[in-house]
């Protein structure tokens, strides 16, 4: 009806308004506040004033030089990688099994539901459960090892650093593989079924279909999983804190636990906690940006392709409307 071509761009803005409004109202101000604190002398409770430090980056320097922070960073990355790689592989494997149309796995509905269940319990409950399992001198694992004859006397398992880290990684792995699997499955369900039908007609095996169709089309969802898991992993807190309070001997101290300790274990070093949070933010951003760079190209290409299609069809539609209007 209009003479000019229809522009839908304004809807992009309109539909984004609720998000932006809610964000500004509820979350923008504290974000700015935290950022500022990192550059000040603000520590201790009951303080009514703070000023910017003469050496504006003093907090950042002191955090970077802090041996506990360095250790915590290493622990965090290590424990994240050890849980994340098996987690994503298992989730993919299960996705392949459960979305295979040819080999219907009996009870797969049940399995999908059950695998997500560990994510429903609070992390606190899980962490406490595991520290009980490995308790010393009497605990289920110790008595099992003893009755099987592997050890003569109970071992202080939780004093073993590698084991402690391993347990934290395992808990994370076990709590999140179901979540990741569900995300993947929903991604697969979003793939146009015609693609699979076509593949089947062409005589592709299940394996070929998975690698040639499922995986490439899961790319965007995979990016989501990688990025969110990175963020969650580098902020890992509940489990290491409640499992052994970062112990033994700081073996499971994570960056988030470190930040908490700065702010809250007696000295209220908010400025240092803020600085450490900002450092973590920068690290996470760099890692995420790298992931995007690696995986983004195709998304963008796909978007562009769609846009071209859209423009083409719009023109077509316009012509038709005009024709009908005549």
């Amino acid at each position: 009806m209009r003479r000019k071509g229809v522009s839908y761009a304004k809807y992009g803005y309109i539909f984004s308004i609720p998000f932006v409004l809610a964000y500004i109202v509820f979350q923008l101000y504290p974000l700015l506040f935290t950022t500022i604190i990192g550059f000040t002398d603000f520590k201790g409770i009951g303080r009514t004033d703070f000023k910017f430090l003469e050496d504006i980056f003093a907090n950042f320097k002191s955090v970077i030089k802090n041996p506990s922070f360095q250790k915590s960073l290493g622990n965090t990355v290590g424990m994240w990688i050890v849980n994340f790689i098996p987690q994503i592989l298992l989730a993919l494997l299960l996705t392949a099994w459960f979305t295979n149309n040819r080999r219907k796995i009996k009870g797969q509905g049940f399995f999908k539901v059950v695998f997500y269940m560990p994510n429903i319990i609070t992390q606190a409950t899980i962490a406490i459960l595991f520290s009980t399992l490995f308790a010393y001198p009497t605990g289920p694992v110790n008595s099992l090892l003893q009755s099987l004859g592997f050890i003569d006397a109970p071992i202080y398992l939780l004093l073993n650093k590698t084991l402690a880290r391993g347990i934290v990684s395992f808990i994370q792995f076990w709590m999140w593989y179901g979540y990741t699997m569900i995300i993947f499955i929903s991604g697969v369900l979003g793939i146009n079924p015609e693609l699979f039908e076509a593949a089947e007609i062409d005589g592709a095996t299940s394996r070929q279909a998975f690698f040639k169709i499922t995986l490439p089309n899961l790319r965007t969802i995979m990016l989501f999983t990688l990025v969110t898991s990175l963020i969650g992993g580098l902020n890992m807190f509940d489990v290491p804190k409640l499992f052994q309070a970062g112990g033994p001997d700081s073996a499971t101290l994570t960056a988030a636990t470190f930040i908490y300790n700065q702010a809250f274990s007696g000295s209220y070093l908010y400025n240092r906690a803020s600085a450490a949070s900002l450092i973590m933010f920068v690290i996470i951003s760099i890692c995420s940006a790298t992931l995007f760079l690696i995986m983004y190209d195709r998304d963008a290409a796909k978007l562009r392709k769609q846009e071209r299609k859209l423009i083409k069809s719009l023109k077509k539609a316009e012509k038709e409307t005009r024709r009908m209007g005549k």
């Binding site: 839908y8 992009g12 803005y13 964000y23 974000l31 506040f33 949070s277 951003s285 846009e307």
Partner: peptide, 30 residues
């Protein structure tokens, strides 16, 4: 809005959302 429409600030808005996501949510809650 981010996928279906082609608007000027689209990319910037998406980048903003990503950045926001990387801030530990707790910082915002305070």
């Amino acid at each position: 809005a981010l996928v279906a429409y082609n608007w000027k600030l689209r990319q910037a808005f998406f980048t903003f959302i990503m950045a926001v996501m990387m801030v530990p949510g707790q910082l915002l809650s305070v």
